[in-house]
C-alpha cells in the first residue's frame, strides 16, 4: 500500500494537519486514481452512515455482587469510629476462634501461639522466685566484705596446702640425699677397710697401723 493511500485515509477522516491536507490536495490535483478513490469512499461513507442504530434494546445486567461486596459496601458506609470498632471486634473474634494465646516474658519477649482446637490446661509450674533487687549500700558493702573474706580464706587455705606439699617434698628429698650420702660413706669406709686389711698382711704396715691406732707406751702420758 502506497503512502498516498494512507494519506488518503487521513484526508478522508480529517486527521491531517492543515499543511498536510494542503499538500495532499496538491497531489489530488494530479492523481486521477486518488480522486476516484476519494469520490467513491465519500459516497461509501454516506451509505454506511445510513445504518444508524437509533433504538438500543434494554440491557439488563444481573450483577451477582458477592456477599463480601455488600458487606464491604455496608462497612464503607459506617463512620470511622464504628469501622475501627467492628474491625477490632472481628480481629478479636478471629483470634478467639483460632485459640490464639499471647504471653510476654522479660527475657523472651512476646510469644504467640494458635491452634484449631482448645489446648488442655497445663498443670501450674512453680516459678523460681526472683532474687530481691534494690539492696541498700550497707547490704552491698556487707556482701562485698563477705565475698572478700571468703576469697581470702580460700586463698589462705590454698597457700597452706601448697606450702605443706612443698615441705613434704623437701623432706623427702633430704631423706633421699641422706640415704645417698650414707651409702657413699659406707662404700668409702668399706673400700678403706679393704685397703687396711690388705696393708695388715704386710709387716711394715703393721708398725704403721700401730702408729696409727695405738700410742707409744712411753709417750709421756
Amino acid at each position: 500500500m502506497s503512502d498516498h493511500h494512507e494519506k488518503l485515509m487521513d484526508y478522508l477522516y480529517q486527521e491531517l494537519s492543515p499543511e498536510e491536507a494542503r499538500r495532499f490536495e496538491d497531489h489530488l490535483g494530479t492523481c486521477e486514481m486518488c480522486q476516484k478513490d476519494l469520490a467513491d469512499f465519500r459516497q461509501l461513507r454516506e451509505a454506511l452512515a445510513a445504518w444508524n442504530i437509533e433504538e438500543v434494546p434494554h440491557i439488563s445486567l444481573t450483577i451477582d455482587g458477592s456477599p463480601s461486596r455488600h458487606w464491604f459496601a455496608l462497612w464503607k458506609a459506617f463512620p470511622i469510629w464504628l469501622r475501627l470498632t467492628t474491625t477490632a471486634a472481628a480481629a478479636l473474634l478471629i483470634l478467639a476462634l483460632f485459640n490464639v494465646q499471647m504471653s510476654y516474658r522479660p527475657q523472651e519477649g512476646f510469644r504467640f501461639s494458635a491452634s484449631l482446637w482448645p489446648r488442655a490446661e497445663l498443670p501450674a509450674v512453680e516459678q523460681p522466685q526472683p532474687e530481691p533487687v534494690g539492696l541498700t549500700e550497707e547490704q552491698v558493702a556487707a556482701l562485698i566484705r563477705a565475698a572478700i573474706a571468703q576469697a581470702q580464706q580460700q586463698t589462705s587455705e590454698r597457700m597452706t596446702a601448697e606450702i605443706e606439699a612443698l615441705a613434704a617434698k623437701l623432706r623427702s628429698e633430704n631423706e633421699r640425699l641422706l640415704v645417698q650420702m650414707a651409702d657413699t660413706l659406707r662404700q668409702e669406709q668399706e673400700e678403706r677397710l679393704a685397703e687396711l686389711e690388705d696393708q695388715l698382711g704386710q709387716p711394715s704396715t703393721v708398725s704403721t697401723l700401730a702408729e696409727l691406732f695405738w700410742e707409744e707406751p712411753n709417750s709421756g702420758y
Partner: peptide, 23 residues
C-alpha cells in the same frame, strides 16, 4: 490500521457497486 481500512473500504466498494443502486 490505515491499510486495513483502505483495503476494507476498497472491498466494500466492490461489493456494493456490484448491487445496483446500492450507493
Amino acid at each position: 490500521a490505515k491499510t486495513r481500512l483502505y483495503t476494507g473500504l476498497d472491498q466494500l466498494r466492490e461489493r456494493l457497486l456490484a448491487v445496483k443502486d446500492a450507493l
